[in-house]
Nucleic acid binder design. Structure first.
Lengths: 118, 118
DNA sequence: ATCAGATATATCGAACCTTGATATATCCGG
DNA sequence: CCGGATATATCAAGGTTCGATATATCTGAT
């Protein structure tokens, strides 16, 4: 189980949001599910990252009050913060993907030349 | 020009040392050359990393006194610290490569599903 | 009704990493 | 003789990581 570092976190979160708006908890479940449980982004990694994306204008946000079926109409209910990829966010994702591919290709050339013995 | 982060630095440095012993300055030049100038590992990234590899037993080290052709025989000369990948280092490299491939493959699956628009 | 576990967001501090600047010293070519 | 390359290394400021902690709500099972 791999805990994602910031660069990979950002790439993955942006790519998840490229499929449609979501919120922190759902994104983290999504990442775990779509990576077959291999990738993990914990709350303490997720929320600061989402805040940073918002501050940088890569996402826009809105709050949703999630009320239970038979809940007290006066209760606050559970709050859910939705994140939507902005045009700037889409551009940033494209840039990140390009950079990722470039990095991978060079990294692979180093790895390919390594005479690996177990 | 990409400055390597620790994880990538370690993978790249180990893979360079897998081809044969080297020393800090040469490794950094090697990385720049073999990446066509795209990867950079600065002295302040390199030396702490090499120290860590040594402390963890992944490399063994030895000093070489590099004397100039017509140098004063009593001068200290320039010091060069050679790093040789240990058996433990070879195993670690194999592990790192495997992890790298796994990570790439999952990361690629996220990226592949991203509807990229410039 | 109660309670455990899931849903949901968020911060904190200690440890660790990153990076440009600084330091020291030697070697080589012009 | 001097600037640039060779060679190693540390420092401090800022950024990152990660488990722990906090708060509050919802759901399903007993």
């Amino acid at each position: 189980m791999l805990t994602l570092k910031q660069d990979h976190s950002e790439l993955v979160v942006l790519s998840v949001l490229a499929l449609g708006p979501s919120y922190g908890y759902a994104i983290s479940k999504d990442i775990a599910a779509r990576s077959d449980g291999h990738f993990k982004l914990s709350p303490s990694g997720m929320y600061p990252l989402l805040t940073k994306l918002e501050k940088n204008g890569l996402v826009t946000t809105s709050w949703e009050e999630v009320k239970a079926a038979g809940a007290d109409p006066d209760s606050t209910g559970r709050r859910r913060k939705w994140y939507t990829l902005s045009p700037k966010g889409h551009k940033q994702l494209a840039r990140r993907i390009e950079l990722h591919r470039q990095t991978q290709s060079i990294l692979d050339s180093f790895v390919a030349q390594s005479p690996v013995r177990a």
